[in-house]
């Protein structure tokens, strides 16, 4: 119980407590953070944050993307949208996925920047759908 984890959205401070380990969906692969981790700043893709207490997963929280700051004693997650896994709505995820794919098709004509943004959105929406699958 040594790593202090904070999950913050612009609307409120969602969670602030000590945990044993947290696995965050970093942009380039899931990342487990324990106490004493070297300081890092990473971007997050859409996915599930798993909070470990002891050897079991105590909580799972879905984020649609954001940033995380890791220092030796704390891990701060900044995310625009944060939902407990139980509140993730599959239909909503599928709707967003469809919208994001449409946006991608439109963006592929425009240029790389819009395309990249659309890809990120697709990825986040897909993670939302997958999160409900369990």
């Amino acid at each position: 119980m040594a790593l202090s984890l904070e999950i913050v959205s612009p609307e409120k401070l969602l969670l602030s407590r000590a945990v044993d380990m947290v696995v965050i969906p970093a942009a380039e692969g899931d990342m487990g953070v324990l106490e004493g981790h070297s300081p890092m700043i990473v971007t997050l893709r859409g996915g599930t944050i798993a909070i470990y207490e002891g050897d079991r997963v105590a909580d799972q929280i879905f984020v649609s993307g954001g940033f995380a700051e890791v220092t030796t004693e704390r891990c701060t997650v900044l995310a625009t949208e944060v939902l407990p896994i139980a509140d993730v709505n599959r239909a909503e995820g599928e709707k967003r996925l469809a919208a994001a794919e449409a946006a991608y098709d439109a963006a592929s004509k425009e240029g790389t920047e819009a395309e990249d943004a659309a890809l990120v959105a697709i990825q986040a929406a897909r993670a939302m759908v997958e999160a409900t699958a369990g």
């Binding site: 700043i41 990473v42 971007t43």
Partner: peptide
Amino acid sequence: GAAYDFEPDEETILARL
């Protein structure tokens, strides 16, 4: 001053941050 590692690189993060 704590030297952070960045993943991906600084500029990509900044562009989103």
